[in-house]
């Protein structure tokens, strides 16, 4: 199979580029509903008594909720002033690739959990592009862009979750 990595100056310039800042409030209703939507029926996600009985300080969030929480708790009045254009960290990069046509695929997703996230937490996130490369495969030009968003506890500054997404643009 002929698969070749290419060095592209435009892509190299993308690495390190900020993809935006965001502040989110982790809300109880969306957490309960998200857990249900991924097939997790545990009462821990909807009933504070069940969370306490399991020895938890509050209702925790499902492991993939970090990918969706700025849909819910990104309230306009708490956003950082110096935000890079509105939209998710991934959205900005995807938009510029899609201007050429083609298809966007989510290739890989990774979460690193530094500490548990709970309902009621307020988290500040900051994103950047951490890798970008291009390959030709089976007649397609595949552009890979890896973005990283680090979410920290707004009170303590401690990291809570690092989210890394490998987005593929196939042309």
């Amino acid at each position: 199979m002929s698969e070749e990595s290419q060095v592209d100056p435009d892509l190299a310039n993308l690495i390190g580029k900020p993809t935006g800042k965001s502040k989110v409030v982790l809300e109880r209703g969306p957490v309960a509903y998200f857990a249900l939507a991924v097939g997790d029926k545990s009462p821990i996600y909807k009933d504070t008594r069940a969370a306490k009985a399991a020895g938890l300080q509050a209702i925790p969030v499902p492991p993939t909720f970090a990918f969706a929480w700025d849909t819910w708790g990104k309230f306009p009045e708490i956003q950082p002033e110096d935000d890079v254009p509105q939209g998710s960290a991934v959205g900005e990069v995807v938009g510029s690739l899609m201007a050429k046509g083609g298809t966007i695929l989510h290739g890989e997703q990774e979460f690193v959990y530094h500490k548990p996230a709970y309902v009621g937490d307020v988290l500040s996130g900051e994103g950047k592009v951490v890798d970008a490369y291009r390959k030709e495969s089976k007649g397609h030009v595949m552009t890979f862009v890896v973005t990283e968003m680090i979410w920290c506890d707004d009170k303590t500054g401690d990291p809570v979750v690092t989210s890394r997404s490998n987005i593929i643009h196939r042309l």
Partner: peptide
């Protein structure tokens, strides 16, 4: 894809506990 990751994640946290994960990574 994130539904698949979520469903699989629920199977993992059902077993290890809801606040025990330190890393979780998948390829779609």
């Amino acid at each position: 894809g994130m539904y698949s990751m979520g469903l699989l994640g629920a199977a993992i946290t059902d077993w290890v506990g809801k606040t025990s994960l330190t890393k979780y990574k998948v390829r779609f």
